[in-house]
Design a protein around this nucleic acid. Structure first.
Length: 197
DNA sequence: ATCAGGATTGGCT
DNA sequence: GCCAATCCTGATT
């Protein structure tokens, strides 16, 4: 089941927690790939680490648009990261997807990553976009009506990500220098595909 | 016009 | 653990 806009229009921290276990789905001519979200981070209004902190610019404009859309950006000149826009329009809040447990289209994911180990396939924000084939042209697209979607955890009958029924760990975010003390990172404790502990 | 630095990854020590 | 790769954005001159 595709998550509706109302799912994303709620409090960003709540959405970040509820996103754990959901499926990130990318469909294109080459094939369909999907993975369960097992780790993410919230970026809030007034948060110095958020790209939206200094106001709207060309790069971050999607963050200020309606919830349920993909905010994608390039980092370090070579990697791409994907966020879901959350909260009320204009808030500039989003959730960064940090790791996936591969679910469907694993062969295509391995091909794109030029490696086989399933644990390293999408266990990082740059790795997951590469394995799912998520590129900058998807920036601003709808996650409930586009090539990139998010589905509820029960969308694959009989299959669930590791540790979905267990604890959710809450820690500080990774790789940032500003507001490094805020506990806004979430991950499934018992899942092996988390980027790091 | 210039420039520092980044929500990362992979390889080497 | 340390560091290079790689390039665009945003802040400053």
């Amino acid at each position: 089941m595709i998550l509706p806009p109302a799912f994303y229009e709620r409090d960003t921290v709540t959405v970040a927690k509820d996103l754990l276990g959901c499926l990130l789905v990318h469909r294109e001519e080459t094939g369909t790939t999907m993975g369960w979200i097992v780790e993410d981070e919230a970026y809030l209004r007034g948060d110095p680490a958020a790209h939206s902190f200094r106001g709207e610019t060309k790069r971050n404009s999607v963050m200020f648009g309606p919830a349920g859309h993909a905010y994608i950006y390039r980092i370090y000149g070579l990697h791409t990261c994907v966020n879901v826009v959350t909260g009320p329009e204009g808030a500039g809040e989003a959730v960064l997807i940090r790791a996936l447990e591969p679910a469907i289209g694993i062969d295509l994911m391995q091909e794109r990553r030029v490696m086989n180990d399933p644990v390293s396939l999408a266990s990082g924000p740059g790795k997951l976009t590469q394995s799912l084939g998520i590129t900058m042209d998807l920036n601003g697209t709808s996650l409930y009506d586009g090539p990139l979607q998010v589905w509820s955890p029960d969308s694959l009958p009989g299959r669930r990500p590791e540790g979905l029924d267990g604890e959710i760990v809450r820690t500080t975010r990774i790789g940032i220098t500003k507001a490094a003390d805020l506990p806004l990172r979430f991950y499934l404790k018992a899942n092996r595909y988390v980027s790091r502990r």
